[in-house]
Design a binder for these strands. Structure first.
Lengths: 162, 162
DNA sequence: TCCAGGTCCTTTAACGTCCAAGTATCTATA
DNA sequence: TATAGATACTTGGACGTTAAAGGACCTGGA
């Protein structure tokens, strides 16, 4: 099946020149490539629901909360993205009526994003679709998926997460 | 050190509702997050050299070739990105004099990107910097880095790579 | 009371990625 | 030889991300 794997080739090139760094280089390249592939897969599943993965995550997060509402800043923390990304995502969702924005009565600097009934319906369908597709990882057993998470947690902590 | 890990929390939320899909969801989320972290690390190292990771990869690829030159299309294959991304990357490198573009004498549809002496100098320095920083993975042994690659290769093939 | 400093969010600007459409060029076939 | 179909690349648009700067709003100490 595999005729030529660019990542394997890159490792070969690197090994010939800087053998002691080839493994680290290849690990990075693998992460980048896997992310690219999986994002494409997930977005394919989401496309019929007119959601990007970023939009899905924002909606999913709100639906998980007790009152379907969260301050923008909190969303950024939970989604681990820049505040500007939250603004961007919520603006689009709001324009589609899937989310509403209002100022917090307690602190008027704070913007509360609240999922609407339409938003709940959309995210429920999208969630089912992703679950059915196993998030694009239908080829993996639960154990294998869990192993990926464990391996990457080592990488996350090494790279400064949490 | 770890007070609250959004990925662990997301897994908890998912497990409470769709336990049979939580591991796959978490694997995806982990990949996305790790990519984000590592890209940021690598770009920090590259910033003093005024290169993005995409620009570095393009330059590095050209420097590896026999004549320092490759058709745009081939670059897209090797870098595993869309042709438009190659156009984009090469345009910026060309404007900085790190790469030159010329039409192939054999097939005038083909654009050959060629690294310049300046380009070679820049990529050599950037490569040293990345190697010294172990690509942002200084905390990992070579064995651990290799393990990441192996685990992700399973994921790549599952997701349709190669 | 008042103001300096911190916090919350938005805006703007760079960058990267992809898709879809358009142009130029080659190639195989009628 | 002419032409329809493939290929190679670029362009323009949509989307995501971050950094930096600005406006509005708290808050605590003088």
């Amino acid at each position: 099946m595999v005729e030529f794997d660019p990542i394997t080739e890159a490792h070969r090139q690197w090994s010939a020149r800087w053998p002691e760094h080839a493994d680290h280089m290849t690990a990075i390249t693998s992460v980048m490539r896997v992310q690219q592939l999986l994002l494409a897969r997930v977005e394919d599943v989401l496309k019929p629901h007119s959601l990007t993965f970023a939009a899905f995550e924002a909606l999913r997060l709100l639906a998980f909360t007790r009152h379907g509402s969260l301050p923008m800043g909190k969303m950024g923390e939970r989604l681990m993205v820049h505040p500007a990304s939250v603004t961007n995502a919520i603006r689009k969702l709001e324009s589609r009526g899937l989310v509403e924005r209002r100022l917090s009565p307690d602190d008027r600097r704070v913007v509360l994003a609240t999922i609407t009934d339409d938003g709940r319906a959309v995210v429920a369908e999208a969630t089912d679709a992703l679950n059915q597709a196993d998030f694009g990882l239908a080829g993996l057993t639960r154990e294998q998926a869990a192993e990926v998470t464990v391996t990457l947690r080592l990488l996350r902590t090494t790279a400064g997460d949490a």
